[in-house]
Write a protein that binds this DNA or RNA. Structure first.
Length: 503
RNA sequence: GGCGCCGUACCCAAGUGGUAAGGGAGCAGUCUGCAAAACUGCGAUGCAGCGGUUCGAACCCGCUCGGCGCCUCCA
């Protein structure tokens, strides 16, 4: 039974969808005016995993994730670059898909845009005006928080407390300082739509109410986003939606913690943020490997807590992941041993399935779920040491694949392990010069030169080394090993005289 | 001023009343021409500190110290 921490009630609760075996969930996406940073990645990943785990549990999930494509920041960016808002949003929506794709984040069922729901937004706003929950001033429409009795329910704030610390410029036209815009009269040159209150554009929060209601209905199961959205964004969404429909809006509110740098929140003002593409560009590993490292790293902590991003953390994730892929590589090989380790896999699999599900049921405890998979890794390695049949090897690999699928891990067939090099060198061509170039670490520190060397060049060297070994010229063999090691290449000799290597 | 989060070994990190998961790094051993991988063993008598409740607390209560977030756009 899945339990989730619900911000609305402040408790961990058993998850029960409105309709049996069907889940409708909405997650606040991004405002498309810039590239996504690692914090966006965490949020996207957390809800991607929630969605995957629900699907794993047999639920049919309708997953809606929006793009906010009309906003002050977009207008500002468009003016800065002298291009249209549409050009700005199109660019960053595409970038979003590229970046999230590299992280293995599945596309949502629906990915609506605010500008495609202006009609819905206007209707919702009219409804709120009609109910006396909103009022018009000079072509603007504001939500009247004082008229909505449950305001502050999600963020556990009282209006009186908010006023105390409010250092906002008091807009004299607003009835209450916390009243927020549903519809903003547009200034010349801004994106504008014809509305009942004159030409304007949607306010900051109304679009999510409009889009979620449109695609999921007035009441749905799960609404998620980053911690910082609790107030005011989600608080306002609840006020608008419940105010307009008179019904419950979303039942479970899930919020993920921040990615931090040195215990501090990443933010543009501190200049301590990293974009996803920047991390990929600077990574010394392949795109596929980097994506999985990031996923592993981001899931190695419970989603609710903070997570410190650093070079070292990434390196540790890489090392941990290596253990799994080393095992997967072993599982692909045959060693001629009698299958004395057979017969224990079923028990081990049953055990890991249970501990994995127990962990995930406990408010998506991915950290404990990964620990369960580490347990299976250890078990299977022991079985291989004793000798495992090809059939059980396949079963074991399949188990990692199917549980890993929930976390989006362990799907790769290649990773960094390369095919075994045969006994004799086959295609020795002209030597390809080993090139070396400096790489920057994600945190901007120089991590020393990391050499790049082509696969074929490595294989030539290894073939040469295998020849040397055959001639018992171990000195020469060790020289080659050391040479490649200094380039970050590790050689592993197998009992049958062949070798494999990895970066 | 209001609301809230966090502090577990060298590092990361589970655990929220029953006697400290897991990973990384390290050290030792087995194996190996050497190495890598794998396996085995070692590693917090203690969970920021001090009190309290309890047969029993990292987990509950109180206080203190330290770090952070939100209240303004923000994943």
């Amino acid at each position: 039974m899945l339990t989730l921490f619900n911000t609305l009630t402040g408790r961990q609760e058993a998850f029960e969808p409105i309709e049996p075996k069907k889940v409708r969930m909405y997650v606040c996406g991004v405002t498309v005016y810039d590239y996504c940073h690692i914090g966006h990645a965490r949020s996207a990943l957390v809800f991607d995993v929630l969605r995957r785990y629900l699907e794993y549990g047999g639920y049919a999930v309708t997953f809606v994730k929006n793009f906010t494509d009309v906003d002050d920041k977009i207008i500002k960016r468009a003016n800065e670059q002298g291009i249209s808002c549409d050009a700005v949003t199109a660019k960053y929506i595409q970038a979003y898909h590229e970046d999230m794709g590299k992280l293995g984040v599945k596309s949502a069922t629906q990915e609506p845009k605010a500008t495609e729901h202006i009609g819905d937004i206007i209707q919702l706003t009219e409804k709120l005006v009609a109910k006396g929950l909103a009022y018009t001033v000079d072509g603007d429409v504001y939500f009247a928080v004082s008229n909505y009795p449950h305001y502050g329910r999600l963020s556990k704030r009282r209006l009186e407390d908010l006023q105390a610390g409010a250092r906002v410029e008091v807009d004299e036209r607003k009835r209450h300082p916390m009243d927020f815009a549903l519809w903003k009269r547009s200034k010349p040159g801004e994106p504008s739509w014809e509305g009942p209150w004159g030409p304007g554009r949607p306010g900051w929060h109304i679009e999510c109410s409009a889009m979620s209601i449109r695609h999921l209905g007035e009441t749905f199961d799960i609404h998620g986003g980053g911690m910082d959205l609790i107030f005011p964004h989600h608080e306002n969404e609840i006020a608008q939606s419940c105010g307009a429909t008179g019904k419950e809006f979303a039942r479970y509110w899930i919020h993920n913690g921040f990615v931090q740098i040195n215990q501090e929140k990443m933010s543009k003002s501190l200049g301590n943020f990293f974009t996803i593409r920047e991390i990929f560009e600077k990574s010394e590993w392949s795109e596929e490997v980097t994506g999985e490292i990031l996923r592993y790293f981001l899931l190695s902590t419970h989603y609710h807590g903070p997570l410190d991003f650093s070079d070292q953390a990434l390196k540790e994730a890489k090392n941990a992941l290596n253990g799994f892929y080393d095992l997967f590589h072993r599982l692909k090989e045959t060693d001629g041993l009698a299958a004395a380790g057979d017969g224990r896999l079923t028990t081990a699999v049953q055990r890991v399935r249970k501990s994995f599900a127990d962990a995930m049921d406990e408010d998506l405890n991915t950290s404990a779920a990964i620990a369960a998979l580490q347990g299976l890794r250890s078990d299977v390695n022991k079985m291989i040491d004793k000798g495992l049949s090809n059939e059980e090897r396949k079963q074991a690999r399949q188990e990692f694949r199917s549980l890993g699928q929930v976390l989006g891990l362990f799907q790769s067939d290649t990773w960094q392990f390369n095919p075994t090099v045969p006994h004799a060198a086959t295609n020795i061509g002209p030597g390809i010069p080993l090139s070396s170039q400096g790489k920057h670490s994600p945190t901007g520190a120089q991590s020393g030169p990391i050499a790049t060397v082509s696969d074929s060049e490595i294989e030539v060297r290894i073939a040469e080394r295998i020849d040397a070994k055959k001639r018992k010229d171990f000195k020469r063999a060790d020289t080659i090993r050391e040479e490649l090691k200094s380039l970050g290449i590790t050689i592993e000799d197998k009992p049958d005289g062949t070798s494999r290597w990895k970066r």
